[in-house]
Nucleic acid binder design. Structure first.
Length: 125
RNA sequence: CGAGUCAGCCGGACAGUUGCUGCCCGAUAUCUCUCAGGAGGUGCCGGGGGGAGGAAAGUCCGGGCUCCGCAGAGCAGGGUGCCAGGUAACGCCUGGGGGAUGUGAAUCCACGGAAAGUGCAACAGAAAGUAUACCGCCCACACCUGGUUGCAGGUGUCGGGUAAGGGUGAAAUGGUGCGGUAAGAGCGCACCGCGCGACUGGUAACAGGACGCGGCAAGGUAAACCCCACCCGGAGCAAGGCCAAAUAGGAAUCCCAUGGUGUGGCUCGCACUGGAUUCGGGUAGGCUGCUUAAGGUCCGUGGCGACACGGAUUGUAGAUGAAUAACUGUCCUCGACAGAACCCGGCUUACAGGCUGGCUCAAACU
């Protein structure tokens, strides 16, 4: 059972790892503000990458806030997300949302993603 | 106490839980090297103490650092622009001069040159830079009327003089007075103003009045071209340096061309092809540059000051998909603008609220 930390091995750190998720995404879930791409990574743990563009969040302070919130949410839910590489993309300016709303929304997306992943595994089996 | 002005400072606090990061210490696991003492790398666990700003922002100037050919000369191009100082340097800062605003403390100024040249200026107006004559005023001439002559009044002229008055304009050749005149005029004079030159004070910008000369000639615009003086080589930490899988083509040495690899149970056959090592190369990736700095604080000395010198003391983020946070609770004045990316010095812009001090004005009290 993994803990709730966020060491380096739980992150996507190289351009190639991001590219793999973009090119061969097996699962997509989204809402108005976020899009999550994911694929199975043959590892024991899930890994997370963030793409928060200047286009949607022009101020560095805003981007930092969103990234911190997303990382925290991943950290607390990582035992649901084993064996998946995920990239979260920002789609529009979510700066108006407060922390509680963002946590709730992201939680819902995680559950959605897990459901799709389980369905795919049982189909293959 | 009120209104204002100029400086300086702060930028939610505390507790708990869960996390991130680089540094130090202690444990381990594993790999490499070894002169067998050990040294180094990587992973993981525990502990300790650090961990965004006054603007970290805009990227507008200046410098350090790095590479490019040494950073020199000329041209082009760009910048700066009252004077003197400070500084590594600056377009910054300090002090001073001039102008403008304000009762004042203070604030603001792209503040060199318009008698080298070129250009530009709506509308109005007769005329706008070689100034100009519309009305008016005066003179001359002609005609008319009145009168005894000298004359007075009126009308006219492709006539002349006149810049005092009217009118136009942002601006019309300096102002006032006296003289002068046909009427006028710096035409002359006095005073004021202006320009030039001496003189005095000041390092200088500049100022001064008790000097002399000039009747005055020289309107504005140089963030228009331009002239003058001074300054500037280019690119930037994705700079630059080191290690180095892979891959293309290459070099050297040795070995074998009766070889090797594949197909096949094996031989023949068929297909493909030299092999090994080293050098070199430099992609992915990693390491470095990377934080001690023109540093902060205090004291002394010099200076009006910016600042300089000397002494003591302190050690203050270094991330790399990129850390400094999330949640809960309590409190208050309910929290703004905003996130380091090689480093400094400035400028500019954004900013909830709060604190301290100097000075000014007004009123009142003693």
């Amino acid at each position: 059972m993994p803990g709730s930390g966020f060491p380096r091995k739980l992150r996507l750190t190289e351009a190639g790892q991001f590219k793999a998720v973009f090119d061969r995404a097996q699962f997509k879930v989204s809402n108005r503000y976020l899009l999550i791409l994911a694929r199975e990574n043959q590892l024991e743990q899930g890994r997370l990458g963030l793409v928060i563009g200047k286009k949607h969040l022009p101020k560095a302070v805003q981007r930092n806030r969103i990234k911190r919130l997303l990382r925290t949410s991943f950290r607390l839910n990582q035992d649901l997300l084993l064996g998946l590489d995920m990239v979260i993309l920002a789609r529009s300016n979510m700066n108006a949302l407060d922390n509680q709303q963002i946590h709730n929304d992201v939680q819902r997306l995680w559950l959605d993603l897990v459901k799709k992943s389980k369905a795919s595994q049982s189909k293959n089996a």
